[in-house]
C-alpha cells in the first residue's frame, strides 16, 4: 500500500502479536486465529505470531485430517510468508515440555525480496524471558 492510498488506518503502524495457545483440530480457534493473521496482513501492520503451550502443536509436521472430517488448514501456515508475516516465535519451554524439537515443526520459510528472494526461516525459538519482552513491546495482543 502506498502512502497516498486512502485507508482509514493509513499512517498508523502498530505491532500486532497473535498469541496462539491451543492445539489444532480439537477446537476451531487455531484456524480462525490464522484467518485473522492473513486478513490483518492487508493492513500493512507489523505482525508477529507466537506459539505457546499447546499452540506449538499447530506447527507440527504431517497433519492429516482426512479421517476426522475437519478441514486441514495446516498448509496455510506455509502461506504466512507470502502475506508478509515473517516473524514466528515458538516458546522453547513449551516445545520441550511436550517432548518436541524444532524438527517436529513445519519448516516455514519466506522469500526475502531484499536478498534476491532467498528463502529464510521464519520460526524463531525463544525463551520465556525473550517472549516476555516480545509481548511487552507489542501494541496489540490478540489471543487464539
Amino acid at each position: 500500500m502506498s502512502d497516498q492510498e486512502a485507508s482509514p488506518t493509513s499512517g498508523i503502524i502498530k505491532k500486532f502479536l497473535y498469541v496462539n495457545r491451543r492445539a489444532p483440530h480439537g477446537s476451531n480457534y487455531a484456524q480462525e486465529g490464522l484467518e485473522v493473521a492473513l486478513v490483518g496482513a492487508a493492513f500493512e501492520q507489523d505482525v508477529a505470531m507466537a506459539y505457546i503451550d499447546d499452540g506449538v502443536f499447530q506447527l507440527k509436521t504431517d497433519q492429516d485430517t482426512s479421517e476426522i472430517g475437519t478441514k486441514n488448514f495446516s498448509p496455510t501456515y506455509r502461506a504466512l510468508g507470502d502475506y508478509d508475516v515473517k516473524k514466528i516465535y515458538v516458546e522453547k519451554e513449551s516445545l520441550e515440555k511436550r517432548g518436541l524439537t524444532q524438527d517436529d515443526l513445519m519448516p516455514l520459510v519466506y522469500e526475502d525480496e531484499d536478498d534476491d528472494w532467498a528463502e529464510k526461516p521464519m520460526i524463531n525459538l525463544v525463551s520465556a524471558a525473550e517472549l516476555q519482552d516480545i509481548i511487552e513491546q507489542s501494541d496489540v495482543v490478540l489471543n487464539f
Binding site: 488506518t9 500486532f16 486478513v39 492487508a42 493492513f43 501492520q45 496489540v140
Partner: peptide, 12 residues
Amino acid sequence: SGLGQLIEAGIQ
C-alpha cells in the same frame, strides 16, 4: 462485516 474490522479496531 469482515475481520478487517477487528484489525482496524486494534489499530485505531
